[in-house]
Simulated assay, not measured.
Amino acid sequence: MARSSFRPCIDLHSGLVKQIVGASLSDASPDTLRTNHIAKESPKEFALLYRRHNLRGGHVIKLGPGNDDAARSALEAWPDALHIGGGITPENALDWISAGAEKVIVTSYLFPSGKFSLDRLRDLSQKVGRERLVVDVSCRKAQHGWTIAMNKWQDLTDTSVTKESLDIFAEYCSEFLIHAADVEGLCQGIDEDLVKFLGEIVKIPTTYAGGAKSIEDLDLVDRLSSGRVDLTYGSALDIFGGTQVSFEELAKRNAERQRTLPP
């Protein structure tokens, strides 16, 4: 029986590790950016911390330009263990694999002018290999369900989060990363409906990010998704300036949970 795991993150903005309220990201209005925390520690230091706790499969997300060097430093600190996202295209995907990424994460490239392109997904999958590709299904609540969002969660696409759409994506990638953009960075609780829905429809490993505020949320996600969805914590963690969740306690609980899995 599967159990939900804790997946770590390194969000990069202007070369620094930051925790940002997702809905405030905007190229058009940079003054609206709401930042919860700017870390004194380098991306490399966070990667080494995750390495010490064997927290594999964490995502390094480049939020805009000026983050390439910072991302490379994290990947070099723990080669073939972290996933990289932000501006991934067929032209640079293999370079990031060579730089140490276990997998590359893609969203916006798959939606030229906001419309899903199966050809682009197929081409990128062939370029890097299905096992090396993660599709970021970042989304916002819509009238009926959730709509995939791109360009740092600013623009809605023509594609909803449905069993049919995820089944198509899953043919060409090995994992999903789901950012619930409406609650990202708010520390006010996860989107329980979305997590439950994902647990019902996903067929490949899936990580949810957005709103986690307590260590008990890991058990909540495990229950809602029947262990099919993993959880990322951000602004609530003490390593990111939060007061609600101890990283060391969370990492310890995560390790204990995995040890109790049946063989």
Rank of each mutant, 00 (worst) to 15 (best):
G85K: 01
S73A: 15
I88W: 09
G64H: 04
A81C: 13
I88A: 08
N67V: 02
G58N: 01
W78G: 02
H59D: 13
Y50Q: 05
R56N: 11
R56V: 15
D69K: 14
A70H: 03
G100L: 05
H59T: 09
R51C: 09
L82R: 10
G86Y: 03
I88M: 15
I84H: 04
A99N: 01
P90A: 07
G57S: 11
G87I: 02
P65Y: 01
W78V: 00
R56H: 13
G57P: 14
D69N: 13
G64W: 06
I61F: 11
A81V: 00
D68S: 10
S98L: 08
I84V: 14
G86R: 03
R52Q: 15
P79F: 08
N67W: 02
D80S: 10
A99P: 03
R52C: 12
G64M: 09
L82Q: 13
A99T: 01
A70Q: 07
G64L: 10
P90G: 13
I88P: 04
H59E: 13
H83Q: 15
A70F: 00
G100H: 04
P79W: 09
G66R: 11
A81Q: 15
A99M: 01
G85W: 08
G57H: 12
D69I: 12
R72Q: 14
R52S: 15
W78K: 00
G57C: 12
E91Q: 10
T89M: 06
D80I: 00
R51K: 15
G66V: 09
A81G: 11
D69T: 12
H83Y: 10
Y50E: 08
A81Y: 09
N92R: 04
L49R: 15
G64I: 13
L55P: 10
R52P: 02
A81D: 10
L82K: 09
G64Y: 08
E102S: 15
P90K: 12
K62L: 14
A74R: 00
I84P: 08
A77Q: 03
S73T: 12
I88C: 06
A71L: 08
S73N: 06
G66N: 07
H83V: 04
Y50I: 05
G86V: 05
P90V: 10
K62W: 03
V60T: 07
W96R: 03
I84S: 07
A71V: 06
A101Q: 03
R51E: 14
G100S: 06
A93Y: 08
D95A: 15
T89F: 04
K62Y: 02
W78L: 00
T89I: 05
L75N: 09
